[in-house]
Design a protein around this nucleic acid. Structure first.
Length: 200
DNA sequence: GGTAGGATGGGCT
DNA sequence: GCCCATCCTACCC
């Protein structure tokens, strides 16, 4: 199967940090478009005041409290949508924000959806950009990512990846916690205008 | 190379 | 009414 097997629900039924780290190197697939996950952030339950679930179970946060392996998609700044994957066992909050992808399939379509981006490095190097590039919207909120059409696959051949840990981006509360995870030396991560062929 | 500011609408107090 | 888990443009070195 292209890009390997679909990750089973048991992959997501772990601690949010384990899932956030484990997703690096896996392949997010939607229709003809796909990208390697190269950057994630963990949003925990309980004492993590940066997480949407910190305010409790509401109409918006319902999915975060539900079973693992589902998509939580929300609107940010009135314009962009962000994709999270729900972790932890059913009833416990916790989700992983997907922050950047390295495109591996459907690059022409991704470019058409992101006309301002000049290079593949910029097609999906941010949470709002990757949903645009892959055609993910709030219509996918609550979708089961072990069933499709939006799925995460194991990837091929890739061994364990070297992971860099930093504080999360763009938040004010709990801003110091080391909960952002990136593949080391990967040029497709967010937060840089870097345009060249490789990074360091 | 860099950054300041604006767009824009839903969720929550 | 205020706050955003963002991105792009204009403008300035």
């Amino acid at each position: 199967m292209l890009f390997g097997r679909i990750l089973p629900r048991s992959f997501y039924a772990r601690s949010t940090v384990e899932v956030a780290r484990g997703l690096l190197g896996k392949v997010l697939v939607h229709g003809p478009t796909a990208g390697i996950i190269v950057e994630t952030e963990a949003y925990l339950g309980g004492e993590d005041l940066a997480a949407h679930s910190a305010r409790g179970l509401t109409g918006r946060t319902r999915v975060i409290f539900g079973p693992p392996g589902h998509a939580y998609v929300y609107l940010i700044y009135g314009m962009y949508e962000c994709l999270n994957l729900v972790a932890e066992r059913d009833g416990r909050p916790g989700c992983v924000l997907i922050r950047a992808l390295q495109p591996v399939s459907g690059l022409e379509l991704m470019h058409a959806r992101r006309p301002g981006a000049r290079q593949p490095e910029q097609f999906a190097n941010g949470p709002g950009k990757l949903t645009l590039a892959l055609g993910i919207t709030r219509a996918h909120n609550g979708a089961d990512v072990t069933r499709g059409p939006l799925v995460v696959r194991q990837g091929e051949g890739a061994g364990p990846v070297e992971i860099v840990v930093t504080p999360r981006i763009g938040i004010t509360r709990a801003a110091e916690l080391p909960l952002r995870f990136l593949i080391a030396r990967n040029g497709f991560v967010s937060g840089t205008r870097y345009n060249g062929p490789s990074l360091r």
